[in-house]
């Protein structure tokens, strides 16, 4: 049986903004369809194996969960004010995230691609710089360092 894409929409609507477990990137994309949207943009922020010349093993994310949740909701509400979006959702990991895993996902959908791209970038930029979420980098040489977002 072919399941309607729209039957997944409740899952997107009820998404929690902060997750201690792996993000279901494929499942969220499967749910992110809307009859009025001709464009769906998905951004997956992933852990890379290097930063500033150092080999990275994994990251640990910490968040002030209630404030981060509230702030991501507010950022998405702002994006909905600025662009005519059919879907706008975001979810960020906490805890240990290994190389190649998704640390943050943003999905936007709109009638045309321009709005979906612009809103997606707006949402991820603000989440990175404003939400009370922090990464600690664990390097292959056994050292660790709390990250900053100065370069991205």
């Amino acid at each position: 049986m072919i399941r309607s894409a729209y039957s997944h929409q409740a899952a997107v609507a009820e998404l929690s903004e902060i997750s201690a477990g792996p993000l279901d990137v494929v499942g969220l994309l499967a749910a992110a369809h809307h009859p009025k949207a001709g464009a769906v943009v998905l951004f997956s922020g992933e852990v890379r194996n290097h930063n500033e010349g150092m080999a990275v093993d994994y990251l640990e994310y910490e968040a002030h969960e209630s404030m981060a949740t509230k702030m991501i909701k507010a950022i998405i509400a702002d994006a909905n004010q600025k662009w005519p979006l059919n879907i706008a959702v975001a979810q960020h990991r906490t805890g240990k995230v290994t190389v190649g895993e998704t640390a943050v996902i943003v999905i936007t959908a709109s009638a045309h691609r321009g709005e979906a791209y612009a809103a997606n970038q707006y949402i991820i930029d603000r989440i990175k710089h404003e939400a009370p979420i922090w990464k600690c980098e664990y390097f292959s040489d056994g050292t660790k360092k709390w990250g900053s977002n100065c370069h991205c």
Partner: peptide
Amino acid sequence: CIFPPSSGG
């Protein structure tokens, strides 16, 4: 609560 600069993403 005291928050250093964010570094999510």
